[in-house]
Design a protein around this nucleic acid. Structure first.
Length: 311
DNA sequence: AACAAAGTCAACCGCCACATG
DNA sequence: CCATGTGGCGGTTGACTTTGT
């Protein structure tokens, strides 16, 4: 049976929401929870389709939605995560508390993307356009490897969220509980700052290797063989992890090959994917990308400062 | 002041994945 | 398995606002 799209639902209103409609939706959800989006509009006395209600709630009415300008930190996070994830806005949004995927997508398309283009950087690959041909092999290899990690991790997160949904379905009709999406997002956030952590470690690794560079022949089967692998000297690696990654030095375990592991990440990766090796290998190829991030992020814009940020 | 162009962002659309029967 | 319903996602649109001439 063919499904009817929102637009095909006769007599249903489209376009901008009125304050009255907002009030109806809000009141209904506060009182009874949202349960089934498809049947909600009728119960709430709205001439809208369920999808429209859901979107309005998620992007605008939800009490924990943060609106307004993006801070410098938020923007950096978006850029970093976009390098890993591409246009997976919901995954990116999971790392930005109180921001919606739609808002992030809009911000990317209207602000960041333009700035990238202006600076001659390809917004898709995050690489200077002039370097696309010459260096694509190296960087693409690194990023795709990282993306592989992240893809697998996201799959695991999806499973987690699905499990939590089952739990939450019992709470759905509790008026005090605002939204499943909210709960899912919260659950996801609490579980998965790994990417950011990992990225920050990439950055820290890059700085650490600047004076202690040790090149080794390719060793990991999971890495592009053309990429020279840089092993962080234990001391440098540990201190930089502790500084940048938000991971205490005590959390790191040194294995018999002098590689550092983060048990928390190891465990999570083990649960979510097949990794040949969860040891962190940072490649020189990452360097220029990170440099680009910082160049771009501080480029001629006024940023609202986060509380407590003295930059 | 009037108009055009550019920018912004809320909302829609179509597709997909997953759950359920 | 298959059919169907639902929620969720990313791409896109278009109304509205701001900026430039």
């Amino acid at each position: 049976m063919a499904r009817s799209a929102c637009s095909e639902n006769m007599g249903l209103k489209k376009g901008p929401w009125t304050p009255d409609e907002d009030q109806k939706l809000l009141a209904y959800i506060e009182e009874r929870g949202f349960g089934n989006w498809r049947t909600l509009p009728e119960k709430a006395g709205l001439q809208r389709c369920g999808k429209s209600c859901r979107l309005r709630w998620i992007n605008y009415l939800r009490p924990d939605v943060k609106r307004g300008k993006f801070s410098l930190q938020e923007e950096q996070t978006i850029i970093q995560l976009h390098a890993f994830l591409g246009n997976r806005w919901s995954a990116i949004a999971a790392h930005l508390p109180k921001r919606t995927d739609n808002e992030i997508k809009n911000y990317w398309n209207t602000h960041i993307k333009k700035r990238f283009t202006k600076m001659g950087i390809d917004p898709t690959t995050h690489k200077p356009k002039s370097n696309l041909l010459s260096s694509s092999g190296r960087n693409t290899g690194t990023l795709s490897h990282m993306a592989q990690w992240e893809r697998a991790r996201l799959e695991a997160e999806t499973r987690l969220v699905r499990e939590s949904k089952k739990l939450l379905s019992t709470q759905n009709n509790n008026p005090g509980f605002s939204s499943r999406s909210e709960a899912s997002a919260t659950s996801t956030r609490s579980q998965c700052l790994d990417v950011l952590k990992a990225w920050q470690m990439v950055v820290s690794g890059m700085f650490a290797i600047s004076t202690n560079k040790v090149l080794e022949p390719p060793s990991s089967s999971s890495l592009d063989n053309s990429i020279p692998i840089i092993e962080l000297p234990p001391a440098a690696a540990a201190s930089s992890f502790a500084c940048f990654g938000g991971i205490a030095q005590d959390d790191l375990i040194l294995d018999d090959r002098s590689n550092y592991h983060v048990p928390e990440l190891d465990e999570r990766f083990d649960n979510s994917m097949t990794l040949h090796d969860t040891t962190f290998h940072w490649t020189a190829a990452t360097g220029n990308i990170v440099q680009n991030f910082s160049d771009i992020s501080v480029h001629d814009f006024d940023y609202p400062m986060e509380e407590g940020n003295t930059n």
